[in-house]
Simulated assay, not measured.
Amino acid sequence: MVAYNIFLNFVEILTLTTFVYLYYSLSSRKQFCLLLTSLFLICELCDILRENGIVLMLGYFITSYIFVIYQKNNLYLGDAFILGSYIFFIYLCTFILYYLFRPLLNSEFPILFYILVGTFSKTFLVLFTYWLLEHLKYNLNVPNKQYLIVIITEILVLSIFGIIEYASVDITVSFSSFIVCSLLLIVFFLIIMNGIYFNKIYTEKMQYEKQLQKEKYIKQSLRLIQNISYDIDDKKHRIHWILEHIKHLNNDTNTEISKAIEQYQSKNTYQKLVASKNPVFDILISVKINRLQDDNISIKPFFEISQNEKYDDLDFIDVISEILDYVKRHNEITLHIKGQGIYTLVELYSENDFYDYDRCKIESDLIVKKKNIYKDGIYYMKFLLKGTDDDVGENL
């Protein structure tokens, strides 16, 4: 029976060593042999001292984790969580089988109990280890703070489990109910803390995922707008040369044809914008300005803004687009957009009265102030839009 017990211990130690060696990628066979020897000596020492519960589990865990830390040259609590859970499974499997075959202890063949429990527990352990190594192909190199509460909870649960196991297996062993209840109460509060903490992490993760989706959508929209813009430019270019060819063939024999062609060409002259390094803003405002130009509204853009994601925000761009909707036809105006701390000044001005003030009813939370001014022969329409960066630099 002693030889059988040593054999079972060896299988358990060999399986645990194999898991640590393969999963945590220990670098040499020397490390494998050293870990195997260390764990086997701990196991036999605990057998001699009759400490086969918590002490043995802690011995396995501490020794194995020292080898993992030595291999990685760093301490990751994610590694400790996986290793601790694996060692917990070793004893959970044995404990469950102990209760399944416990009636055999009172039968005529009590030795059958030890054979069945030992054989089944080690077989399940080997199969589970094989499955784990096949499917768990990644390392949990996550921030330690995400696992600290989990590790503390795990240690307390293992301690309670060990206490219950001792009391169940050895009826002569008894523990204070106060200790058990105190540990359970601590575990209860830690589980609540786990829930709150991981809910916070989940919320942050979802916000991050939404931001990534938003950026992906913006990039896709940007590519689509660029392709449409290039296609329109190409068609305008072809139409321009076709009209030039028609003018050449006409040779001023029909002045109405020449005049119509010249009007179309002047109306559809593409005006290139100064890039502000905010791609979505640049393209959408370019499209808007060129549409207005088709309605005989000539807009000269003048931007004093830095590269900032707030300018690529679709709500911000929609407000500027709506502001431009109230410009009267047959006007030439300057569109001046200037960053002012947390605000952005959108200013339109011209020598002629160009804005439909009576119809201008823009409703947006982004607009802080709006004002129309006539000064030194120039008509101004100003809007102050709020943003998210620094302090206010100047007012309207």
Rank of each mutant, 00 (worst) to 15 (best):
Asp391Leu: 14
Glu347Pro: 04
Val157Gln: 03
Val392Tyr: 13
Asp356Leu: 08
Glu309Cys: 04
Met381Ile: 03
Gln31Lys: 15
Lys371Tyr: 11
Phe10Thr: 06
Ile42Trp: 10
Phe383Trp: 15
Gln213Pro: 01
Asn331Phe: 03
Arg223Asp: 09
Gln31Met: 15
Ile285Asn: 03
Ile201Glu: 05
Ile320Tyr: 05
Lys72Met: 01
Leu8His: 05
Leu34Pro: 01
Val20Gln: 06
Leu314Arg: 09
Ala80Lys: 11
Leu14His: 07
Thr253Met: 08
Tyr4Ser: 11
Ile317Glu: 04
Lys328Ser: 05
Leu16Ile: 13
Asn251Asp: 15
Ser64Lys: 12
Asp353Ala: 12
Tyr23Ile: 02
Phe383Met: 12
Glu204Leu: 10
Leu183Ser: 01
Leu284Lys: 06
Ile186Leu: 07
Asn139His: 15
Ser159Glu: 06
Tyr86Thr: 08
Thr63Glu: 07
Leu156Ile: 14
Glu363Val: 12
Glu332Ser: 12
His240Thr: 14
Ile285Val: 06
Ile378Lys: 10
Phe188Trp: 06
Tyr311Cys: 04
Val157Glu: 01
Tyr343Ser: 14
Arg29Leu: 14
Glu304Gln: 05
Ala275Gln: 10
Thr334Leu: 13
Gln271Met: 05
Leu49Gln: 09
Val280Met: 06
Asp315Gln: 07
Tyr91Lys: 13
Leu335Gln: 02
Lys272Tyr: 10
Leu158Cys: 09
Tyr86Asp: 07
Leu156Asn: 05
Tyr65Gln: 13
Asp389Trp: 07
Ile149Trp: 04
Trp131Pro: 00
Ile155Asn: 04
Pro103Cys: 05
Ala80Asn: 10
Lys219Met: 02
Ile62Leu: 13
Leu75Ala: 11
Ile96Glu: 03
Ile257Arg: 01
Asn9Leu: 04
Glu154Arg: 00
Leu45Val: 08
Gln146Pro: 00
Leu243Ser: 00
Leu97Val: 05
Arg291Asn: 08
Phe88Asn: 11
Asp282Tyr: 03
Glu332Gln: 11
Gln31Gly: 10
Leu34Asp: 06
Ser25Asn: 13
Asn139Ala: 15
